[in-house]
Design a protein around this nucleic acid. Structure first.
Lengths: 338, 338
DNA sequence: GTGAAAGCGCTAACAC
DNA sequence: GTGTTAGCGCTTTCAC
């Protein structure tokens, strides 16, 4: 049989009745508000404990009118970058101030409107969103309904923190160029508004070097999608000697595809990822990649959210962090005879 | 300047006033309850859209008295096993029924009571917890306050779904034994109640083979902790020829430690992990490990939670799944001369 | 130092 | 079909 449980969880009123005071006192005691004598306070805590009373944060928020909860939307829980962002956000939030409501998209690819809606319906006072795939207009529209901080992607008119993707992609491409590669392909993610900076920067860098860019789009941001797309790419004639991918997950997929075809990395094929997720640094993976400092992005986003909560009319934040190329062992000069 | 935003989000009353009906109708319309004429319904939706009205799920839950939200506690967001569990839980929950409230522990090691409390305070009707490190009594106590489903670990008197760790650890150890290893060490996690099955099973299997077990405990469940502990272990004289770790994260750390000391895997050292996380299957990692079918665990937990919500007095669930050894390339016979 | 009363946005009988 | 009413558990003036 199930463990015996009080049929109805204890409420403030129960505690008040038990102690013989009014609900107000109980409320005050639990929020550490002044105006409760030490004795009463102790009696209240004692009774609360005996009754198993837990404050109802949800009812409190409702009564308080002003929504203090911070909603955090994460696009892909399997991508450790988002765990880093979460850590960063937490660092920025006061220990015991704002509740953090988490929401994880269920489809990595595509736009999970439901996950965002759930944050709104849970009455988050502000939403930190990493990463939004929706077109700019949709994001701006959403920001009308609830204050929004866009992480990882700049949206005009909306608080944003992001990494300088133009610089990151240029560094990655130039690294490959510098090694002597000419046929460098770019494996992009699905095409979404606000997510074309890396691709555009790659293409521009190639053009500037007098080379023809070759971009292909994976149908998702996952390892599996990267593997599918790369397999197709490598089976074509005149395959590239290097691939620069939109993120590490895609790069991981590209590796698998290459190995499955019997190619060696970096001897036959160089690969550069993006994110510098922890996996990239593992022995046996050794992926050259671009560090976008996800934890710092998260921390900055948290600070911006707090500021916005305090000052709804303040100026719009637009912070851009400098990424940094991390050279490991997945890149080398192109094979001699090609 | 910040985008213009309505000072106060629209409520049901606002919509009702706008249309010229009572709040009840609006409530009914939004929940698809019968008793609203098609015409009225349309007028309501139209007005709601114009006013930017969003239902307040929190207030609804409060009014509804019965808590339908499912709380999911995840111990380590960086361990992909927990992402698998999340996916499984989602599969089990009805698309539009129960809200899912997520909570991630901030310290991997140790017990993050706060993360659990936040679920209670957010008024989850039931909590699915993966993985609880607290002693049995604490868990049972918690289960008095709110229905609980323990994932990954059996707790007497509490709904539990878990993998058969005894069998899994035995299979892992026997695999190593079968390859001819004699000096097999076990890298356990920090010692917590309810988390000793893998270790005990390893020790028993060693004893049964007439061998002396050598267990060491990492100070956390992370890769970093695994690396620290293994570095110490390998620097001792008479180092083991194989290590079986409590989870894949620790195994990843063990690999790094071995490589840093110039050892080869599996030539100099065999390693067996536990979890079969996605990383384990990557080319270049190729970790032999035990599949605990995390997604299935999550799905089963979700189903149990639903059942418990429906029938608070039903019999206590105790489901155990069969794990399965996945042999890859991190294990081989021990080096010849030792 | 303590309490009464109103109200947060919503649901759920129960009338009309 | 539609509206009225009484809460859900809590916070918050404002009086005592």
């Amino acid at each position: 049989m199930a463990p015996s449980r009080p049929l109805r969880p204890a409420t403030q009123s129960d505690v008040a009745r038990e102690v013989g005071v009014s609900r107000t006192l109980v409320s005050f005691a639990f929020r550490g508000a002044p105006g409760v004598s030490g004795e009463t306070k102790e009696a209240i805590f004692e009774a609360a404990k005996r009754l198993g009373y837990r404050p109802n944060a949800v009812a409190a928020d409702l009564a308080r009118k002003h929504r203090s909860a911070v909603g955090l939307y994460l696009m892909d829980i399997r991508n450790e970058v988002y765990a880093d962002i979460l850590s960063g956000v937490r660092l920025a939030l006061p220990q015991d101030g704002n509740r953090l409501i988490l929401s994880v998209s269920r489809s990595v690819d595509g736009v999970d409107r439901g996950a965002l809606e759930s944050l709104i319906e849970a009455r988050a006072g502000i939403i930190i969103a990493a990463t939004l795939l929706d077109p700019d207009e949709s994001v701006q529209e959403l920001a009308q309904i609830v204050p929004l901080v866009s992480v990882t992607r700049p949206v005009p008119g909306v608080d944003s923190v992001y990494s300088d993707d133009i610089a990151g992609a240029r560094a990655a491409t130039e690294h490959l160029l510098g090694l002597g590669h000419k046929r460098i392909a770019h494996l992009a993610g699905p095409v979404y508004d606000g997510h074309t900076a890396r691709r555009r920067s790659y293409e521009k860098t190639m053009h500037d070097a007098g080379l023809k860019p070759q971009t292909l789009a994976a149908d998702d941001f996952t390892q599996e999608a990267g593997q599918r797309a790369t397999t197709l790419l490598l089976k074509q004639s005149g395959r590239p000697t290097a691939i620069f991918t939109h993120n590490d997950q895609l790069a991981l997929g590209a590796r698998e595809a290459a190995y499955a075809l019997g190619l060696s990395i970096p001897q036959d094929l160089s690969i550069v990822g993006y994110d510098n997720s922890r996996i990239a640094g593992l022995h046996g993976i050794d992926l050259t990649t671009v560090n976008l400092h996800a934890a710092s992005l998260g921390q900055a986003a948290g600070a911006i959210a707090l500021e916005r909560l305090k000052n709804p009319e303040g100026p719009i934040a637009d912070e851009s962090l400098r990424p940094e190329l991390v050279i490991r062992n997945s890149t080398a000069p192109p094979p001699a005879q090609t």
